[in-house]
Nucleic acid binder design. Structure first.
Length: 474
RNA sequence: GGCGGGGUCGCCAAGUGGUAAGGCACGGCUCUGCAAAAGCUGCAUCGUCGGUUCGAUUCCGACCCUCGCCUCCA
């Protein structure tokens, strides 16, 4: 069975097929961060999900051209720039670096392209001009350029591809009524924002005078610049479906750059939000974690990744500290099995086989099923139990161990969990261990147990087995 | 008010028209000097009430609870 994915465009699970099978790579775009602060764990759920999809596509033999934009000009950024007195590039550069570091902490493969909005101003301007030429964009009294949804519809295009919209039934929220722009229609959105004094030095020359791009237009301009006017996959958090993605479609298809009958994007995929302790993350509730916060609490990136990969991407997922602790325990069990396989396989290398083992095949099929990662983990842990049983039974030879290890590496190429970083054993701990060994040899159990207690207090646990004594970090 | 998700074991979380994966936690047993680790093993009838069906947790209806979106929040 081929890969099937939910497509927000049609609200059903569909087989994934590249829009252009001869292209040699899959065009893959994921809306990235707005760099005005550290990303929180909810943001990273989307990026970890995107990483899983990318890795699975690669596992299935696709070459993926992964693009993620960095929004480095936006209202909040401008406010921060003004408040901190830093230059725009300096300010956004800091958070961009932090974001990429966090992405690395969570073992996400680096996107092939990380375009910044400010580096694509000419392309953005070209796109707006094209929309203007086609009569879909208009300049308002405030000097800004807006996208006219009515004109767009008049061209036979459809606005409302990702959601069902009934403008009459929409509630007037504060955000709408608080909008002070001079738009023809409330639903219209800014393509180019005329400079206002509060923008400070953040502005660019354009055919409409000084100003800066609207939010939605950057993704249209950059995705099409890097992936062409029609590409395969566009991902993002569910909150972006409307209006951001809807507007991206409108701008991109409104510009009419696609070949006849081709859409801007073939498959839209949205990741559900994360809850923290059952509630939406928000600063006022204080249930807001950055990756850094969690590292400071002693958790590892792989533990966070494991937890984020625990649930299906289209389900809201409840992120808790208990969940992180459970992730740690589960990973310790997995790590122990992998370590034993490595030990047992010694120097023998696995002979590569043309056919996937039943384990690897079942794992891949689980992910083919709309990225059913929970099912995939169930398969992994079934395999862990079975492997442990074989290991405990002493029936696993070096070659078989190496083969299993190779299977795990294959699977982990998709999961990206990796292995626990080796921790050096401090000399003091090593000395205690030796003291205990001496006591043990002398059958002085009281001393041996006392030393074990001391080691435990230092964060190390001792495991005796027939093969010898093993020291493990708690 | 409109639209869209959810309610499955103590916690997290899959899934299916024929009596429910996996993880964490917990109990018993084996192994162990004792432990730990590991193995074996035990532990749920799926929000409520109706309906369809030979049979529903899975389909339909109503209700309750909960979460999200409704114009620049992943």
């Amino acid at each position: 069975m081929p890969l099937r994915l939910f497509n927000s465009l049609h609200r059903r699970v569909e087989e994934f097929t590249p829009i252009d099978p001869g292209a040699g790579s899959v065009g893959f775009y994921c809306c990235g961060p707005t760099v005005y602060d550290f990303g929180h764990i909810g943001n990273f759920r989307t990026f970890v999900f995107a990483d899983l999809l990318r890795r699975h596509l690669e596992f299935r033999g696709h070459r993926v051209n992964h693009v993620m934009n960095i929004t480095d000009v936006e209202d909040k950024i401008i406010r921060q720039v003004a408040a901190t007195g830093l230059g725009l590039a300096e300010f956004t550069g800091r958070y961009t670096e932090a974001f990429l570091a966090d992405l690395g902490t969570l073992a996400c493969r680096r996107p092939h392209h990380l375009p910044r909005a400010t580096e694509y101003i000419p392309q953005i301007i070209d796109l707006i001009r094209r929309l203007e030429q086609r009569g879909i964009a208009y300049r308002a009294a405030d000097g800004s350029v807006y996208f006219s949804i009515q004109k767009y519809r008049g061209c036979g295009c459809r606005y409302g591809q990702l959601i069902t919209l009934d403008p009459e039934a929409q509630r007037r929220t504060e955000r709408v009524s608080g909008d002070t722009y001079d738009k023809d229609d409330l639903a219209d959105f800014a393509l180019w924002k005329a400079r206002v004094p509060a923008d400070g030095a953040v502005s660019w020359e354009s055919p409409w005078g000084q100003g800066r791009p609207g939010w939605h237009i950057e993704c249209s301009a950059m995705s099409m610049a890097l992936l062409g006017p029609s590409f395969d996959l566009h991902l993002g958090g569910e909150d972006l479906a409307f209006p951001h993605h809807e507007d991206e479609i409108a701008q991109s298809e409104g510009a009419g750059l696609q070949a006849p009958g081709r859409p801007f994007v073939k498959h839209w995929v949205h990741a559900a939000h994360l809850l923290v302790d059952g509630k939406k993350m928000s600063k006022s509730l204080g249930n807001f974690f950055t990756v850094r916060d969690l590292l400071a609490q002693g958790f590892q990136g792989r533990e966070i990744r494991f937890l984020l990969l625990g649930a299906h991407y289209r389900e809201t997922f409840n992120f808790t500290r208990e969940g992180l602790e459970a992730a740690r325990s589960a990973l310790a069990r997995l790590d122990a099995t992998i370590a034993q396989l490595a030990e047992r396989s010694g120097s023998s290398a696995a002979t590569s086989t043309a056919v996937d083992s039943p384990f690897v095949a079942a794992f891949g099929e689980a992910l083919d099923d709309d990225l059913n990662v929970s099912k995939a983990w169930a398969i992994v842990f079934d395999w862990v139990r079975e492997t442990n049983a074989a290991l405990a039974g002493g029936t696993l030879g070096a070659a078989e161990s190496a083969a299993r290890l190779a299977d795990w590496r294959r699977v982990d190429g998709v999961l990206g969990i990796g292995s626990r970083p080796e921790e050096e054993i401090p000399a003091g701990v090593q000395a205690l261990l030796e003291r205990r060994q001496v006591a043990k040899a002398a059958r002085d159990w009281a001393t041996a147990d006392a030393v074990r207690g001391e080691l435990k207090a230092l964060g190390w646990t001792v495991e005796d087995s027939k093969a010898g004594t093993r020291l493990k970090r708690l």
